[in-house]
Amino acid sequence: MVLLTILIKFTRIGKAMRATAQDMHMAQLVGVDVNQVISVTFIIGSALAAVGGVLICSYMGQINYYIGFIAGIKAFVAAVLGGIGSIPGAVLGSFVLGWTESLGTGYISSDYEDAFAFIILILILLIKPDGILGRSQRQKV
């Protein structure tokens, strides 16, 4: 997380990434190689996902080819929960998601394991539409 924050906040490519996310055309105009930035983001993202995959299969002890589907959805939920575009938000979102799921499974009912994640998501987005740590973006006209 620290490394990722440093990468996004302080390096050249991180700056380029944020510029691309904000406005692709504008970034291109000021000399950012947008295609390269997209490639790099995908490389970093895939690498992190692969690390997660190795961890989960050493924890579960078995794999199948459907394993990525629900994990991908949950990762998306966690990112939205914390606020898209905020690294601490993503970490916090994942923690909240994981805890609700395991506590909910333990204390309430194990049938609704996945439902807890979604219910907490809906509740939080009702109160804070930009996620827990997401900054609300002002709309420009």
Binding site: I73, F76, V77, V80, I84, S109, D111, Y112, D114, A115, A117, F118, I119, L121, I122, L125, L126, P129, D130, G131
Partner: peptide, 28 residues
Amino acid sequence: LPVLRLRGDYLAIITLAFGEIFRMVMQN
């Protein structure tokens, strides 16, 4: 009702959550 204020990714994920909750309620 909950999605009135949301847009983009947030909207997609909320609708997804709704669909999954429905399915789980029916299943359980």
